[in-house]
């Protein structure tokens, strides 16, 4: 007597040779058992064939979301005050936007935007502390001005998204200065210890990054090398 479990294991090729031979002999000798085996074989074929066309349809990894990189770098940096991040890992691209909430650390003295940005030939460029931060800081380093990520734009210029106390934005290194490509202002400085949106996660900043970026954001080593070359193309 062959039970269904054994019969199906035989069909699936899961039996040892000895038991398989015994089932094969039983199926040969018993038309009812043979019919049942054939019905299950047909079901198996139908399931295998029915879903097989999916294997021929191309599937790609989800599109990258620079948004997530920005915020995750900031969130991680806030969580663990350690070395600069080890680089932008691919999975960071898909991190949840929930990570855009980071612990804001407000520091005593106020930065006025006057000291951070000036115009030169009608173009807004970074000045003062902001210019220095963009020149020198690596992504994820703490401080009043933090750089969220660095990347190259389609012209090959280096660009960096940053987050200061009341101002955040994206600036690209062009003509010896950091030209602003997008900026957003916050109305009031964050309170100490208060949760606030990581401003590098502002939609305007993110869409600018998305629009400008060519390829992947710089990893830690590339970023450091670019900084040491003073962001020359």
């Amino acid at each position: 007597m062959i039970d269904d479990q054994t019969l199906l294991a035989w069909i699936d090729g899961e039996l040892d040779d000895f038991t398989a031979a015994r089932v094969a002999a039983a199926v040969k000798a018993d038309p009812t058992l043979a019919a049942k085996a054939e019905a299950h074989r047909a079901l198996g074929r139908r399931l295998a064939e029915g879903f097989r066309p999916l294997l021929d349809e191309p599937v790609a990894l989800p599109p990258r979301r620079p948004a997530a990189i920005v915020s995750l770098a900031a969130a991680r940096e806030a969580r663990q005050r350690k070395q600069p991040p080890a680089g932008t890992r691919p999975w960071m691209r898909y991190a949840s936007l929930a990570a855009t909430l980071v612990l804001g650390v407000a520091i005593g003295s106020q930065l006025t935007t006057n000291g951070e940005v000036r115009t030169r030939d009608g173009v807004m460029v970074a000045d003062g502390l902001l210019a220095r931060a963009l020149d020198e800081k690596l992504s994820g380093q703490d401080g009043r001005i933090r750089v969220a990520l660095s990347f190259r734009d389609k012209a090959g210029d280096y660009c960096r998204s940053f987050d200061a106390e009341r101002l955040s934005g994206v600036a690209c290194r062009t003509g010896g200065a950091w030209q602003m490509r997008a900026t957003t202002m916050r109305a009031a400085p964050a309170q100490t210890g208060e949760y606030r949106m990581a401003s590098a996660g502002d939609p305007a900043i993110l869409s600018t990054v998305e629009r400008l970026i060519a390829g992947d954001p710089l990893d830690a080593a590339t970023e450091r090398a670019a900084r040491d070359r003073k962001w020359a193309r």
């Binding site: 879903f51 097989r52 999916l54 294997l55 021929d56 349809e57 191309p58 599937v59 790609a60 990894l61 691919p90």
Partner: peptide, 13 residues
């Protein structure tokens, strides 16, 4: 990522 990409059609099935 390469391994993951290769598995995507199977995963989707």
């Amino acid at each position: 990522e390469g391994g993951l990409t290769a598995l995507l059609p199977r995963l989707r099935r």
